[in-house]
């Protein structure tokens, strides 16, 4: 809890106006030939002051409410189990292809890879309430869509809005660098995980490999690759590409080998089935048993509403008093 602040303190200059009800009686006046008929009545006097005080309080609460009082929420350090997970999501054109193996002659629109990934990731988020998520999407260049924060709604909304868009080139290395950059200037409080969701099909140049290696080392991050895998793609397990005669390997297999060689903890999951997802989630859970310590910024507390409510109640009472006011001097 912080101290009380005002959004528009200059409005407090209106406070002297609150004394206006003290100047007048505020009720209809009648002439009477001789007040000696009316004995001094304590209840009437009390009611008279009551009406004035009510009016003063009403005006005061309105002025104070208009000036917008609030207290700063401050920040709290929360300790939670979980990891800081930066999802690096591929939205290249190839992610728009169907996930399920099908007869290429029947062009029926099935579930695309990116849709499947989104589903998987949203499920992951729901299953891991203690984790901190950030999101980078990339095709030809990476976009930092959601910062690393415990605010789930941003990440979730960003994830939902990620659509694949072909631009012919997949900047995997720069996306990974951007994702790793999220960890910059953050104290190491939890397991750091780069969760790459991609269908691969790209290469990382040797000079970029060195940079990535350094960064992973500096930020002590782990890498997990959820390989969104079509049934007829090659599995990462294949050592050699049997379709090619020259003994060259499939780019994805090569990428897998490259990640293994970078030196950080690395795991790859081929997701073309429910089982793959379960395995991935279980593995992430195992990797994040270290407690996370993170700063949580509380929203500021706005008190104007209470003052407006108070003013409403007081106005109701004043309205009632106005109702019982004598409008015409007759029985």
């Amino acid at each position: 809890m912080g101290s009380l602040h005002l959004f528009k303190p200059e409005l407090l200059w209106l406070l002297p106006l609150c004394l206006l009800p003290l100047l007048s009686y505020g009720v209809k006046q009648f002439s009477y030939p001789g007040l000696e008929d009316w004995p001094k009545d304590k209840i009437s006097d009390m009611l008279r002051w009551g009406v004035r005080v009510l009016a003063v309080l009403t005006l005061m609460s309105l002025v104070i409410a208009a000036s917008g009082p609030f207290t700063e929420g401050g920040t709290v350090t929360k300790i939670g189990k979980g990891a800081e997970i930066v999802i690096v999501l591929d939205r290249s054109g190839s992610m728009d292809e169907n996930l399920v193996k099908q007869d290429p002659t029947i062009r029926v629109k099935g579930v695309t890879r990116i849709e499947a990934s989104r589903k998987v990731l949203l499920k992951l988020m729901d299953q891991r309430p203690g984790d901190t998520f950030g999101l980078v999407v990339f095709n030809a260049s990476p976009i930092a869509v959601a910062p690393l924060s415990s605010d789930r709604d941003i990440a979730r909304a960003a994830l939902k809005s990620a659509e694949s868009n072909s631009s012919g080139f997949t900047a995997l290395n720069r996306a990974l660098e951007m994702g790793l950059d999220y960890f910059k200037d953050r104290s190491y409080t939890a397991t750091r995980l780069i969760l790459l969701v991609s269908d691969g099909d790209t290469k990382i140049k040797p000079e970029d490999q060195a940079i990535l290696k350094d960064m992973f080392k500096e930020y002590r991050a782990e890498l997990m690759w959820i390989y969104v895998h079509t049934g007829y793609d090659f599995s990462l397990e294949f050592e050699e590409d049997i379709s090619k005669d020259d003994g060259a390997v499939d780019p994805n297999v090569a990428l897998n080998q490259l990640f293994h060689s970078l030196g950080m903890p690395y795991q790859a999951f081929e997701v073309n089935s429910e089982a793959g997802l379960q395995r991935a989630v279980a593995e992430i859970g195992r990797a994040t048993n270290k407690p996370t310590r993170y700063e949580y910024r509380l929203p500021r507390q706005d008190y104007a509403l209470y003052f407006y409510m108070l003013a409403m109640v007081l106005l109701g009472v004043l309205f009632w008093l106005k109702q019982i006011e004598i409008k015409a001097w007759r029985p």
Binding site: Y25, V27, K28, Q29, F30, S31, Y32, P33, G34, L35, W38, D41, I43, S44, D45, L47, R48, V51, L321, I324, E325, I326, W329
Partner: peptide, 17 residues
């Protein structure tokens, strides 16, 4: 009801319920 009375002679006012 409530009203405020003014004495016609002295101009004194009195709040009455």
């Amino acid at each position: 009801g409530i009203a405020s009375l003014t004495d016609a002679e002295t101009g004194e006012k009195q709040f009455v319920w």
